[in-house]
Design a protein around this nucleic acid. Structure first.
Length: 432
DNA sequence: TCTGGGGTCCTAGGACCC
DNA sequence: TCTGGGGTCCTAGGACCC
């Protein structure tokens, strides 16, 4: 049996945990750059505000209904997430942290110690609420895909008190019949259209199809697994996360610019900044990268036809996490795709082919001593930035030509709340 | 005027190797 | 006219997820 624990409207719930007066009011959280809506309270959803909608398009509606708006505060959300995951790991040995607000649990054999699984889930739900003020829902089923589906129904129906256990074939069938096909995990926009055009509109209808059909219609082996999972055969195991943090297979840092940029020096500085950030993340999870991708994009909403993005992939001679080295490759990659005169809106750096750090061979002609010096430089850099704050020490190439100007590749976030739990200066102040 | 930032997995084709 | 069978790596692109 698998359980899926999913935090309700997670970012909004994090903000509410520190401002209880927002309870019952419409609240939304915006993406980076205050661009789109990425988390909405139930009240905001009821007003018709949709996920991913650009803020500027719904600004009037938001003001008219006095919806509270927040910029995203990832320092806060990341820390709140860690608290939820830490609690789950204390109860269940096998936890897969699936995303910032979701975890799969392996409940195999847990019934022996805890009795009824639905009761165990209700306890976890209560404890998470008590400890973090984050509301969660829990779905339990024989496969991950069905646990997802159960979770969604637990969220929708208040009668279920946030927990649904699909413990009999009859309940599984009932749940499949309740679920529109587009709400199945793995069915996105393209497949929804395709399925509707073939008369398939519910999860139950999809579950009745053959594996061969699914393979042909839904992207090969991915579709075959999806249908098998709906039929109750597990095709996805649990990938337990050690220490409750995610170890990624690729690391990216990408941004839409606050203003369009067309000077080479500015774009160099932007991608150098992104590469520095990505390298920090890389060292934090003690990895080294084998490939580096740089991409630059023009306005994808304009009248110009695609492609809007050009990218350049470099395979590195030796995997590295050294910012100095990565910056050199970043510049090389950028030069390959640079078009003079173009106006760029977005850029990014992606590090791929990650492996465990410290197992790389020395670069040709480099002595042990040199390698150690480079490693020490990076760890000193990380320690300074950790202690005194992000960007305390930076590489000059990652700075704009005019260091007093507004940096175009660092977006606006007008409504960001304090990092209550991760920064001493931001501690919550309570008036007596 | 203003449209996010991460990730995953899979497929297919070409180059190259033995 | 006939012209193997595997394997890897790289790249690009497609679909999906939160």
């Amino acid at each position: 049996m698998f359980a899926l624990v999913d935090c309700n409207n997670f970012y909004v719930s994090c903000e509410r945990a520190f401002q209880p007066r927002l309870e019952g009011k419409p609240v939304v959280v915006l993406s980076n750059n205050d661009g789109c809506l990425i988390s909405r309270s139930a009240e905001a959803k009821a007003l018709g505000l949709r996920m991913g909608e650009p803020y500027f398009k719904v600004k009037d509606l938001i003001q008219r209904h006095e919806v509270r708006v927040f910029s995203s505060n990832y320092a806060l959300y990341g820390d709140m997430s860690a608290r939820v995951m830490h609690y789950l790991s204390s109860v269940v040995p096998e936890v897969e942290v699936y995303s910032i607000d979701e975890a799969f649990l392996d409940l195999h054999g847990m019934g022996r110690y805890h009795g009824d699984l639905a009761t165990l889930a209700a306890t976890m739900r209560y404890q998470i609420r008590k400890r973090t003020h984050i509301p969660v829902c829990i779905g339990i089923a024989p496969t991950k895909t069905l646990a997802k589906l159960a979770n969604r129904l637990a969220k929708k129906s208040p009668l279920l008190n946030g927990v649904l256990h699909l413990d009999t074939p009859e309940r599984v069938q009932w749940a499949l019949e309740q679920t529109p096909v587009e709400d199945v995990w793995g069915i996105g926009g393209q497949y929804t259209q395709k399925l509707y055009s073939q008369g398939i509109s519910t999860a139950a209808q999809l579950a009745a199809m053959s594996e061969g059909w699914a393979r042909k219609q839904l992207g090969g082996v991915v579709g075959a697994r999806l249908v098998r999972e709906l039929q109750g055969t597990p095709c996805h195991g649990l990938a337990p996360s050690e220490d409750g943090s995610l170890s990624r297979k690729s690391i990216a840092c990408t941004r839409t610019f606050a203003q369009p940029v067309s000077a080479f020096t500015d774009v160099v500085a932007a991608v150098a900044y992104f590469a520095s950030r990505a390298a920090e993340k890389l060292r934090r999870q003690q990895s080294a990268a084998n490939t580096l991708t740089v991409f630059i994009s023009k306005n994808r909403f304009g009248t110009e036809p695609p492609p809007h993005t050009r990218s350049s992939v470099l395979t590195l001679p030796v995997a590295t996490s050294d910012t100095v080295e990565l910056l050199r490759y970043t510049r090389t990659a950028l030069k390959r795709i640079w078009e003079p005169g173009a106006v760029y809106r977005k850029a990014g750096v992606i590090l791929d082919g990650l492996e465990t750090a410290g197992q790389q061979q020395l670069l040709l002609f480099e002595s042990n001593e040199q390698a150690e010096r480079r490693a020490k430089l990076m760890s000193d850099l990380d320690r300074l930035n950790e202690r005194f704050g992000k960007n305390t020490v930076q590489f000059a190439v990652a700075l704009p030509a005019n260091i007093h100007a507004q940096v175009p590749w660092v977006g606006q976030s007008q409504w960001r709340t304090p990092a209550y739990t991760t920064c001493w200066d931001d501690l919550l102040f309570i008036r007596a």
